[in-house]
Design a protein around this nucleic acid. Structure first.
Lengths: 277, 277
DNA sequence: TATACTAATGACTAACCGGTCATTTTGTCA
DNA sequence: TGACAAAATGACCGGTTAGTCATTAGTATA
């Protein structure tokens, strides 16, 4: 395990117990068994650590969920969404607790931006599910449905994260599927109008700039040995500015890199960039 | 306004913007226009301030909601519960934000206990509503209904607290009433069993000890001038250890003090103590 | 006006914070 | 073994923190 990862995994434990502000760098390094100086070889600052941490876990969660949502059958999508979420939370209890705690933290503007970004990703994922499962029929209540799903997920996740009793992930998912279906079927008094919903939809997620994409791909390419994936990355980089290949080829190249753990996130971003979703 | 109140109302503004940890006592006193020493004449420590703050606002919220829930018609109860909650939040936006932010803060064990206490009060209030509105028919799903209501309330409150768009409290309440009714009517796959629900129900709220009640009443009696209320308090104090009066008399005495703003909370606690609810 | 008491002040302390950097330890070659 | 570089250390820095306390200001009584 790299030192960076060691620090992240130990830090997430302390943050989830005490909160970000209340945990000192000294505490983290003591807990890792390293010196304070060593910390600053891996991270430029304490702020950079929590930003990296959020990315590290949220990228895993988001790609996993997005993949699930796009590849399940219509009948299973909603169940799998709930189940995978609970499962991810129970596999990363400390991070999930941190997420709940630091949700609305505002001192650090960069952190707040990041939170808003991933929250918006979640909204988009849920909206995709809703449109896939219920079709156009529920257009006028779909934004209320997003809010309701997030609220329910929040309540039941708290149970998983902060109670000592065993948590049956399958039953919980099943129960939330039923609640969602009921609401989708019978709801007729939405609170959020189409008008407001649009704002809701497009507000905070602007796509990554080409420069950001390219630099991210470069830094990943440097870390990878496997030649197929490295080559695919290089070819994809060339396609970002001026797409000359057929989209099928690009899709294939993205498929090549998706299997690699380090590439999952960039694969997801590239699909968004090339409008392949 | 007393100095204590001044500090609390200014502090809640700063806490809601920056969080508790990130706000210094110096900042608070500067903002109040008083000296640092003066702060420590009103509060023993910064921790004591936030505990007092939570009590100050949550007692207002709880008594208000409890009164509403018990005195509305069956048809209006649920609507009024949602509406009053939204209304209280929009009248005390800063405190409500603080509440959302510091929800699960765990460094301070006393704070965590207090949060759990008021959360449990909320659970009891919601349970009372559910039983009043839906009767015994929904016994097997009532704990799921509590969770669902809290989740929905959480989602929609976030909208009120963290978005800049105008928030129609009446429409929001109406919309949540509908959602709740739908769930209560059609839900059939509860997640929380009767067994777990019992734990849920009795877990953390132990009644206040008689000593705590008595000392609270004494300190309030010292602050009050009005003789009727003062006398009623003294008579009630005598009844706590050995109830000799008829319960009707006790009920009357409690009614005497309820009108006084300082007594609302103790009136609520006394009703619980004498099992008058 | 003198006295006695409370309310309020802000300089001060000891502890801790995030972050730096000269120094030492460790690992890797020839 | 010795020479060199990379990795790791922890004393140290300037700044901030919660909390204290000798001193002063304000007020009421006599």
């Amino acid at each position: 395990m790299s030192k960076k990862q060691l620090i992240m995994e130990k830090a997430v434990e302390l943050f989830s117990k005490q909160g970000f502000e209340a945990t000192s760098v000294q505490q983290i390094t003591d807990y890792c068994g390293i010196s304070k100086g060593a910390f600053y070889l891996s991270f430029k600052s304490k702020d950079e650590l929590i930003l990296a941490l959020i990315d590290y876990y949220m990228q895993q969660f988001s790609t996993e969920l997005d993949y699930t949502v796009r590849n399940e059958t219509k009948e299973n999508t909603l169940y799998q969404f709930f189940y995978k979420t609970f499962h991810a939370f129970s596999n990363h209890v400390e991070f999930a607790r941190l997420l709940m705690k630091e949700q609305t933290y505002s001192l650090n503007e960069a952190l707040l931006d990041k939170m808003r970004y991933y929250d918006q990703l979640t909204n988009e994922t849920i909206l995709t599910i809703i449109e896939k499962v219920y079709g156009d029929a529920i257009n006028d209540i779909k934004f209320d449905l997003i809010l309701a799903i997030k609220g329910l997920l929040n309540s039941y996740s708290s149970l998983l994260l902060f109670n000592k009793v065993a948590f049956d992930e399958e039953l919980a998912a099943e129960s939330l599927v039923e609640k969602t279906n009921i609401l989708a079927t019978y709801m007729s008094t939405p609170f959020i109008t189409e008008e407001q919903g649009k704002m809701f939809q497009h507000f905070s997620v602007e796509d990554m700039s080409k420069e950001q994409l390219l630099s991210l791909m470069s830094s990943i390419a440097d870390d990878i040995e496997d030649s197929l994936e490295k080559d695919s990355l290089v070819l994809l980089k060339e396609q970002i500015d001026h797409t000359s290949f057929n989209l099928a080829i690009i899709k294939g190249l993205i498929e090549n890199i998706r299997a690699n753990k380090q590439c999952k996130w960039i694969a997801y971003l590239l699909e968004k960039h090339f409008n392949l979703l």
